[in-house]
Design a protein around this nucleic acid. Structure first.
Lengths: 224, 224
DNA sequence: TAGATTGTTAATCGATTAACAATC
DNA sequence: TAGATTGTTAATCGATTAACAATC
């Protein structure tokens, strides 16, 4: 006799690629809602980005029957669903580690979705401690990290330190109990399997473009 | 009788994923070289990040016989090869469009590889024109874009404008003949097939992390 | 020669796309 | 009912991994 059905965890079923697309779908729905569109078909949605309608339907189907056959998706309802799926229906408290150019820019960046609040900013350079961002956030010393993560109930840490300092900073964050890290430092980082690390390696992205330019220059270029 | 062998373009053979990894390999080799390591096996290299040795060998094999059987890869030689493959053996001239927090931070960011030079910075806000970054770069009006792209021989444009302005800016860049764009604005963008667009959507990455936290909270969380 | 490690081919895995029955 | 479009299953495609012959 079989044991009780153990449904596989949602995060195991849903690929990283799918998850990343959910954000893009939501952003598009926001535009549609503003434009007064009430209902949209996967095909119409697909034509807005370069994706296939089947992929959109499959991505969304992970989370239940979100559409209506013969009709399409209700824009507002799907917005609400995606917001909830992405955890955007609650406040997410963010700490930024690294108060250099990038860390400061991210602290004042206006493009995060409602719900994300940058509540702490750290650096290890004594000269930066106590400085204020334009939005009034004060730079704290990383020695305060553990205390702050607990008191401020940090959900996600954004890492904006130089590559050479990144692994140590990650280790500190993990030691403080941070479960999710968005890393802007280039290069590979190690985290224990319980911690989610997502890296935004824009230097590598830039070098990818450089690769394509070099290949085209050499006449080995793409034909696309 | 068959026509002359038409070798498929290098950029068609090599996947985007492979290309992105080349940067990471190179960064690792730089560390090894500094540490005085002369030779490294794919297996040892793999253990440094979470990748498999087979994948590294396969990635590198796209570009010729870069290793020595029975021995491994010569660190310095592989460094040189990767630099050349990635086009890092020449200067790459970069323009940044958008002089907000992020654009200014990127203009002064110290982490780009040698060879990348930020030579121009644009905005459409008259109040920002003429301002100087810490490194002395002057903000120009986007109306100057076409002239500047030609005169400054811009290779790559970095887009750091708000989401709402991104598509228009992309269209302008494309109109000016820019062939490669690194985009930091969230959301989907359209470019003609001749232009390489690489997006760094860190807001989507942040929302991905938020998704995992939400899933774990609901007990649907990952088991990994 | 024996041991090690590559480059490459074959097997596996996962993600995307196509097709279609279900159903509004 | 006819037309449209979903959710889902099957087919395709591509990328990763495993295996091994080549060779230092």
């Amino acid at each position: 006799m079989a044991g009780p059905e153990k449904r596989p965890a949602l995060t195991d079923q849903v690929s990283e690629a799918t998850t990343a697309r959910l954000s893009v779908y939501l952003r598009c729905l926001d535009q549609l809602a503003v434009a007064g569109v009430r209902t949209i078909a996967s095909k119409a949605l697909a034509s807005r980005f370069g994706l296939s309608a089947a992929q959109i339907r499959k991505d969304l189907a992970h989370f239940g029957e979100l559409g209506v056959r013969g009709v399409g998706y209700d824009v507002e309802a799907l917005q609400r669903h995606l917001r909830e799926i992405l955890g955007l229906d609650r406040r997410t408290r963010v700490a930024i580690v690294g108060a250099g150019n990038l860390g400061l820019a991210l602290a004042d960046y206006g493009g995060f979705r409602d719900g994300f609040e940058v509540v702490a900013l750290f650096d290890n350079d004594p000269r930066k401690i106590g400085a204020r961002t334009r939005s009034g956030l004060v730079v704290s010393h990383v020695a305060e990290l553990a205390r702050s993560v607990e008191r401020e109930r940090i959900d996600i840490a954004i890492l904006a330190v130089p590559a050479a300092a990144a692994q140590r900073a990650v280790d500190q964050l993990v030691g403080c109990g941070v479960r999710a890290i968005l890393n802007f430092a280039p290069g590979a980082l190690r985290v224990p399997p319980t911690v989610r690390l997502k890296s935004v390696d824009f230097t590598a992205s830039l070098e990818t473009l450089s690769f394509f330019l070099a290949a085209e220059r050499d006449g080995k270029g793409a034909s696309r």
